[in-house]
Design a protein around this nucleic acid. Structure first.
Lengths: 203, 203
DNA sequence: ACGAAACCGGAACGTTGTTCCGCTTGGCGC
DNA sequence: GCGCCAAGCGGAACAACGTTCCGGTTTCGT
């Protein structure tokens, strides 16, 4: 996550090779078990340690506590999408007109949610603040807000961005997929229609 | 929650007076502690028992487990709103045109969420399925869906109902109130605008 | 008033997140 | 190549939690 930039006057805090290797192993083991079990709370820290082939102390030295481990796992998964938005090819990346970028973004977000639903659901449920505080949400909200401001200066972009992203929260998405039987394509289509209704409306 | 309907051929299972009294006490104590603490997981069952003046065994005999206790507390709080919708005076109850009923419903839901936010947040966060499975959500979704079908036959009413109710999930609402600094009135206004955009749009 | 059935309290059990400490190991200066 | 030592390691130990269990007590129809 952080790049370990050396700060003037302080020791750069070099990371030992085995520590980095173990961190990787733990992150992978945690992601696997969270996904398999479907609920972070039902995954034992001892089980993660065993799966990774390390002791429990190592988990706590690298990640602090269980919630931080979960959060770290979550934004490992989101980084790819993040980079595609910031510097990838249009229409997801910069360069396309706002309507196309917004639609591409919403569809990419549906795809991302679909691909890692169990993991996202498991982690979001365990975080004390839901999805808003940590991880990729602030960036997604900002992106949506900027595009909405171009498309519809007359609406409250901050609120509408939350409202557009709310159906992609893991609990809502999961409910629509499992209980209502909707396909990812149907959800993406509906979401696109909702977005158009928002910026097509006149206050 | 259930009405203890007597089944043909079985004893009606009379409820002893002290049992009913204790059930009431436990529900009140749990609601108080959930609200004060802001997170179900951080409230000890022993603390609820002590606050209610009973033993922990009584909690489990009446409510089965912690999640059921939390769920029970939650729909005690929602029953009032539920009845106002089904048989109260217009525009919340039957008799008003659909646009007015929908708007009144959304505003009432904002008010309800605002009044019991800490409790709702605490309980929803502890439930394994979020808010969808138990409690009042199915009724609210159905109500919204029926009204939307009258107002906008061209949209997917089931999906749009979820989308309209999603910003009222306790995590989203809490985020908007606390982190974004919006007032309940602003949220209700924005939600109303969103609803109008939905049924005012032409597919 | 009396007896049976239902109910009560709280000690006890198993599981979990987290801490702690003695031993091990990797990387740098020589 | 080698030794030093801070950083890292494993896993036993601790505290807190949800839940179960059982001997004594209370309620209510008769």
């Amino acid at each position: 996550m952080t790049l370990e930039l050396p700060v003037a006057g302080s020791a750069p805090a070099p990371v030992r090779g085995d520590a980095a290797r173990n961190r990787e192993r733990v992150a992978e083991a945690a992601a696997k078990l969270f996904r398999e079990c479907g609920d972070v709370e039902r995954v034992d820290m001892r089980a993660i340690a065993a799966e990774a082939g390390v002791g429990v102390g190592t988990l706590y030295r690298r990640f602090g506590d269980k919630a931080s481990l979960a959060a770290s796992v979550l934004d490992d998964h989101a980084r790819e999408l993040q980079e595609a938005i910031l510097s990838g090819p249009p229409p997801l990346g910069p360069g396309a007109p706002p309507e196309e970028r917004l639609e591409a973004f919403l569809r990419a977000l549906v795809e991302h949610t679909e691909k890692a639903l169990d993991l996202i659901y498991a982690v979001e449920h365990a975080l004390p603040t839901g999805r808003f505080a940590l991880g990729p949400y602030p960036a997604w909200h900002l992106h949506t807000m900027v595009l909405l401001r171009e498309l519809a200066p007359h609406v409250d972009a901050a609120w509408c961005a939350d409202a557009l992203l709310a159906p992609l929260g893991s609990t809502v998405y999961r409910h629509q997929r499992r209980d209502r039987g909707l396909s990812p394509e149907q959800i993406a289509d509906q979401l696109t229609l909702l977005a158009r209704a928002v910026y097509g409306s006149r206050a």
